[in-house]
Amino acid sequence: MWAFTLRRLLYAVPVLLGVSMLVFALIHLAPGDVVDILVPPEVPKEIADSLRQRFHLDEQLYVQYVAWLGRLMVGDFGVSFFTGRPVAEELFGALGNTLVLALPAAVLGFLLGIALGALAAYNHGTWLDKLFSATAIIGVSLPHYWVGIVLVAIFAVVLNLLPAQGMGFEGLPTSWEHVQHLVLPVVTLSLIPMGVISRLVRANVLEILSQEFVGTLHAKGLFSRRVLYHTLKNAAPSALALMGLQFGYLLGGSILVETVFNWPGSGGLMNLAIFRRDVPVLSATIVVLAAIFVVINILVDVLQALLDPRMRR
């Protein structure tokens, strides 16, 4: 098991290296010169050139890459072209804001998804199954920014129960008032994970329930809840893989939902960086998100192998 984990960790190194190259290449090879876009055309050429020099944009691309990678390694993310603030500050601030939403949204979506999926499978073919499956399909297919707007209209505008917009706090929520700000965006964001997880769990549990070993479990006289435990442990590995992906997506932030709720998260940060051609912010954000994705994947792999010995290759 330890050897397996170590191997997974080692695989991550070339993956991350590849990602960093790709990100760097895509951003720097995109058409249009960064400085030309950043500075107004009436600025004299000397000033533009001095800017290029200051940000090492005049050097060979591979030299720039190696220098950038070296700085990344020691945790130096550079400063934003646009605001002049350290990238790390902007990035981790926004990522933190997103995490405050993503974590509860993931927990809510995953728990609901697992419960609905398992219940639907256990009541296969009944009206409960149809109801839960319909809920899941609606969850995946409704545009969630639209759901966000509708929720705001109902709970903030009409009922006046919850705040319509904004975080209302910095860092972590510490009071009931802060939590109220979380409710609507968290519910909105949890819809897609809920939908996809419940569909997968339903299909999975149905498949497992049709297997012969479930007959053995009943033939042994086990209680239903112990049989359920066996079923869920069998269903867990593939559900975990999907949950890892979904959590990764949530961390990437959703520009649409963040806009609806005026939430300063990583989706908004990335969007702004793209429009502003803010190369240091953009490349650091993508690399950090990719690194988080890779870490989640390793975690999922290890958990899967813990649950299912056949996956310990």
């Binding site: 012969e212 070993f213 479990l217 033939a219 006289g221 442990k233 069998n234």
Partner: peptide, 24 residues
């Protein structure tokens, strides 16, 4: 019934590969 199954009457299945839970 669940008190009788496994205690008083037990079953052996045809395919031992699929009759045992793979993850326990």
């Amino acid at each position: 019934l669940r008190h009788v199954r496994g205690a008083k009457v037990a079953m052996i299945f045809q395919e031992p590969m699929v009759a045992l839970d793979p993850v326990f």
